[in-house]
């Protein structure tokens, strides 16, 4: 089961939102084990590094954004078996998704589902931005956003 760490990073490289989860696929088969479906299984040492890993990819994102006219930048970095995919919005907000591949599984990584996840997360972010009481670079604390993002994660990852 793959674990994911999704973060949104603002225009001033400030954290806006973060969310840790694991793949919901196969969670039925795994439900006999002690794990809660959707709970991330990063080891403690990796867990505390996750914000650093996603922030350290910002330089690469900023280089990569000029090489393509797409918003989805694909896999841009890896760090000890953690892969980093990124997406950049029209407003220069970065979405970073870190996920581990070293967990013993030989699951194929479907790039298009990650892309689709980013695109829908972007839609959700835009909706959040349309709230008059939210301004750019504020932390996202809305429980509704949380819930909807989880649904998207469940659908695609």
């Amino acid at each position: 089961m793959t674990s994911y760490y999704f973060s949104i990073i603002g225009t001033r490289d400030n954290p806006v939102y973060e969310f840790e989860f694991s793949s919901f696929k196969n969670s039925l088969a795994m439900s006999t084990s002690t794990s809660v479906p959707g709970k991330s299984q990063f080891s403690a040492s990796i867990k505390e590094m996750l914000p650093f890993i996603s922030n350290s990819s910002l330089d690469i994102i900023e280089d990569a954004q000029w090489t393509t006219n797409l918003f989805y930048l694909g896999k841009i970095d890896s760090f000890y078996g953690l892969l980093v995919n990124a997406f950049i919005t029209q407003g220069n907000i970065k979405f970073v998704l870190c996920y581990d591949v070293s967990n013993g599984t030989t699951q194929k990584y479907d790039d298009s589902s990650i892309k689709q996840f980013f695109i829908e997360a972007n839609d959700l972010y835009v909706k959040c931005l349309l709230n008059p009481f939210y301004s750019v670079n504020d932390a996202i604390v809305s429980p509704d956003f949380d819930l909807r993002l989880k649904l998207i994660a469940k659908k695609y990852l």
Binding site: K127, L130, N131, P132, F133, Y134, S142, D144
Partner: peptide, 12 residues
């Protein structure tokens, strides 16, 4: 619902 004034809004 939907109230046209309320769309997108989450109040503090």
């Amino acid at each position: 619902e939907p109230n046209p004034l309320n769309e997108f809004v989450e109040i503090p």
